[in-house]
């Protein structure tokens, strides 16, 4: 036990720094950070690694901490805790359950009066384009790719019946601020389809006002499964 405490006194700071540096390098090397953050964070994360490098060296060179008790163990454990969750979150995307907590009716992004022309968007971001240029697309046939939610309590409340939705999350900075763009689908969903499946939906686009809320609707929608895009999230222009 004494040896363990001695080792903790000597090595806990270098270990914390090293593990965090290793984690950030891993996220950078495989661009895994895009699961959580926008691509703009690349230089910030690189700077963080550069800040951690001398701190790790200093931690290695400095004397052992004078003591290692419950408080020091707690601080160390708390600082290391996120590493477990970052590992666990690898490959996980926010889905229908996150839509339920974040959906406030409009699809809740931003520039309802903006223009998709302001954005340099890849081709698979048609949902964002549609949202930004809603007036332009009103009444027109569109094809969209997104995730499926087989129902949503707020839509049930507003329309009085269960309807499926197609949705994607738009990230401004990180997944914590991810806002959903969701369209109500007026069409049949195959029983085999599940929440969070990737679908392609084709139908006529409408903006419907229900009470204070605006609902984006795809009328006479045909829905079929499709492959997940390389990037599950959409990114705002910021």
């Amino acid at each position: 036990m004494k040896t363990l405490i001695e080792a903790a006194r000597r090595w806990r700071l270098p270990l914390v720094c090293f593990l965090w540096m290793f984690c950030l390098l891993g996220l950078l090397a495989r661009r895994r950070y895009e699961t959580f953050l926008t691509a703009n964070f690349l230089p910030i994360l690189a700077l963080a690694v550069m800040a951690l490098l001398p701190m790790t060296l200093c931690a290695l060179l400095r004397r052992a901490s004078p003591r290692f008790g419950a408080r020091e163990a707690l601080a160390t454990a708390i600082v290391l805790l996120p590493l477990v969750y970052i590992r666990h979150a690898d490959g996980i995307t926010l889905g229908a359950s996150a839509l339920q907590t974040r959906y406030v009716g409009t699809g809740a992004l931003v520039n309802r009066n903006g223009s998709s022309a302001d954005l340099a968007v890849p081709e698979d971001t048609s949902l964002l384009t549609l949202f930004l240029d809603a007036d332009k697309f009103e009444g027109k046939d569109v094809t969209l790719v997104g995730m499926l939610a087989k129902g949503n309590p707020q839509v049930v409340e507003l329309l009085g019946e269960k309807r499926p939705l197609i949705f994607r999350f738009v990230i401004n900075c990180c997944a914590a601020d991810a806002a959903p763009i969701a369209l109500v689908l007026e069409g049949n969903v195959a029983d085999s389809m599940r929440d969070d499946d990737w679908i392609e939906a084709t139908g006529r686009f409408r903006v419907r006002k229900v009470d204070r809320f605006e609902l984006l609707v795809l009328e006479e929608a045909t829905i079929r499964p499709t492959a997940a895009p390389s990037q599950p999230y959409l990114y705002s222009l910021w």
Binding site: L47, A51, Y85, A89, T93
Partner: peptide, 29 residues
């Protein structure tokens, strides 16, 4: 690992930390 709440927690918690930690590190420096 497959619980929906835990999965969402992992993504959002990791996002907040990864967004904040680099700035905090630079701030400490």
């Amino acid at each position: 690992p497959d619980n929906e709440t835990v999965r969402n927690f992992s993504v959002i918690f990791s996002s907040i930390i990864l967004e904040a930690m680099p700035f905090m590190l630079l701030g400490t420096l």
